[in-house]
Design a protein around this nucleic acid. Structure first.
Length: 579
RNA sequence: GCGCCCGUAGCUCAGCAGGAUAGAGCACCAGAUUCCUAAUCUGGGGGUCAUGGGUUCGAAUCCCGUCGGGCGCACCA
């Protein structure tokens, strides 16, 4: 066998359905997309369960149980099937031979680091844009979750057979980076000995700009100290953004995150991309000059009706048409972002954006833009925005106070230094992204079974230590006597064998956290099996007077460790060999 | 006023493209541990899946309404 068991049986079921079609029992051409092959919720129901009869009964004009009855003789032809029975409303439950499961164990050993890899993605290109923090300062914890979620998703998609582009969009064209440039200029003058006093309201106060000011003072001397802004703004902006991006890359590297592509908004604009997009949209009557309505529910005292070039996002489900340029003629963030997404779409088959939840309000317009720009001929490129909720930092249950104004936010680098990359990454994936989460410094480093990070890593380390100890006693993993493995061991194999399914499901849903939850389950299963050995020494991995059984058990331990390792690799977490 | 996300056990959360008796951990209760595989273990109680309708053979899951919580609502990125 060269394919994971669940994938293998999906085709077995498919073939059985084909046989029914050939017999004339089942009409040809029925859509089988809803047919599933999965483990039953209750293990007592068997090893594999399919809903094929239930899903196809209606379109076939029959009832589920009758269809199931016809399907069963076909399914039991497979020598790996011990029994097939109809259950409940029309499920077919299959029991497989132990040998089938032992084969899966051999497959894990054979595939090694590639176990779970899928060709589902069919080499299609997915662009995952994540982080994209403004280049105005170091990464703080607000960016962290999106960074980890995006990075793990990118790895997951690659594992599932996609070609992945990891991309970072640098917002280096708006007013924020002018503010940055001014803030740096202040530090530059400060470095030259000018008395600058307190950092004025509206500029970035953080100390991280001090070294840059000093470097610029060393490089340019007093040349720009009293010069008008127009003479230095562009230069300082460029230098500041470059310095901030270097800092951000270093911060990301601490988490093991490396993007393939960094796209600059300023370069995009300089290359005329937004203008080209506007022209194209105007030609298709998707941009027009109009006046927005005053926002409802707000006082309209400050409201001034202005004619602006508006994108018809309402045609694609947005609540309001959106301006792509400001009244001063500059591009709005959206105007540039729209062109940016078009650019990304040209180099990819599908797009995923990872955004902070505070940007939820702009999802509709960008979705509309992608639909408009990529859907002109035929179907639009698949595009998803994944929102990531905020993280509340706690220290022993007490919220960590942060004030952006004072500049004393907790940086990502601080947190990684304190608790480590692996803890940060795994913890960020222990909750679905659209739920808020707490990150408690005390809890995430706790070495107990209550901490999933530890629990999963300990599982891997335990398999390693077992193999080390066994080796010292002269035992090695050996598949020769796998048939000595019993029900407890087979249960563990069944659990591990779900890994390929989990990968495909998670990739399809673009949800890397499912991998983390699966690993917790697998670790729980492994630890539970281990604990059986407490009371029953004959169930331990090393049974000193039975080399064949010990070899088989060690083989099992090695493969469980392998699956945990593969899962952790997707999450970007080190599979430590000892803790 | 509108939009988006959320509402599952006392607490923190899963629930896999609707599927079989809704799961896990914590907490709680009752036991176990002279054996070192104790970085504990076994067992147990506990849920009208916010709520009211609808679709379906079948709904925590899909649709609509209501209540409650969070976030966002012009040329700021």
């Amino acid at each position: 066998m060269t394919r994971p068991l669940f994938a293998e049986f999906a085709t077995v079921i498919d073939a059985a359905l084909d046989a029914l079609v050939a017999q004339g029992t089942l009409p040809a051409g029925l859509a089988r997309g809803a047919v599933t092959t999965e483990p039953p919720r209750d293990p007592a129901h068997g090893d594999l369960s399919t809903n094929a009869a239930m899903v196809l009964a209606k379109p076939a004009g029959t009832n589920p149980r009758a269809l199931a009855a016809a399907l069963i003789p076909e399914l039991t032809r497979d020598p790996r099937v011990v029994s097939a029975e109809i259950a409940g409303p029309g499920f077919i439950n299959l029991r497989l031979t132990p040998a089938a499961w032992l084969g899966e164990l051999r497959l894990i050993a054979h595939a090694g680091d590639a176990y779970g890899r899928s060709t589902m993605g069919a080499d299609s290109v997915v662009n995952v844009e994540y982080v994209s923090a403004n280049p105005t300062g170091p990464m703080h914890m607000g960016h962290c979750r999106g960074a980890v979620v995006g990075d793990a998703l990118a790895t997951l998609l690659a594992f599932a057979g996609h070609r992945v582009i990891r991309e970072y969009y640098i917002n280096d064209a708006g007013g924020q980076v002018d503010v940055l440039a001014r803030s740096v200029h202040l530090r530059y003058r400060e470095a030259l000995g000018h008395d600058v006093g307190a950092v004025p309201e509206g500029l970035y106060p953080g100390d991280y700009l001090v070294p840059l000011g000093q470097a610029l003072a060393a490089e340019f001397g007093t040349a720009y100290a009293d010069a008008p802004e127009a003479e230095w703004l562009g230069l300082f902006r460029t230098r500041a953004v470059a310095a901030m991006m270097a800092m951000i890359r270093d911060d990301l590297a601490l988490l093991g995150i490396h993007h393939d592509v960094f796209s600059s908004e300023a370069e995009l604009q300089a290359a005329g991309k937004p203008a080209a997009a506007e022209a194209w949209l105007r030609a298709h009557d998707l941009v027009y000059d109009g006046v927005l309505e005053a926002p409802k529910g707000k006082s309209d005292e400050e409201w001034e009706p202005v004619e602006l070039p508006l994108f018809r996002s309402t045609r694609f489900g947005d609540d309001q048409d959106r301006p792509i340029r400001k009244s001063d003629g500059n591009w709005t963030y959206f105007g540039a972002d729209l062109a940016y997404h078009f650019q990304k779409a040209q180099a990819a088959d599908a797009l995923v954006d990872i955004w902070g939840a505070d940007h939820a309000g702009t999802v509709k317009r960008i979705r509309a833009a992608v639909a408009a720009l990529t859907g002109a001929e035929g179907t639009a490129k698949p595009f998803e925005v994944k929102l990531v909720q905020m993280v509340q930092l706690l220290r022993d249950g007490v919220p960590v106070k942060m004030s952006k104004r004072a500049g004393n936010f907790v940086t990502l680098a601080d947190v990684v230094r304190e608790v480590g990359k692996d803890v940060v990454r795994f913890t960020m994936l222990t909750r679905k992204p659209d739920a808020q989460m707490d990150f408690d410094f005390a809890k995430v480093v706790e070495a107990s079974k209550d901490n999933p990070v530890f629990y999963v890593q300990y599982c891997h380390a335990r398999t390693c230590s077992t193999l080390r100890k066994a080796a010292a006693e002269g035992f090695v993993p050996d598949a020769a006597a796998l048939d000595r493995l019993g029900d407890e061991e087979l249960a563990l194999i069944r659990l591990a064998a779900q890994f390929p399914r989990v990968i495909e499901g998670a990739a399809q849903a673009r949800e890397a956290h499912r991998v983390a939850f699966f690993l917790s389950d697998l670790a729980a299963g492994f630890h539970a099996y281990w604990n059986v050995g407490n009371d029953r020494p004959e169930k331990r991995f090393i049974v000193a007077d039975d080399a064949a059984l010990t070899g088989a058990r060690l083989f099992l331990a090695a493969q469980i460790g392998q699956v945990v390792k593969n899962g952790l690799a997707i999450l970007g977490v080190t599979a430590a060999e000892e803790l």
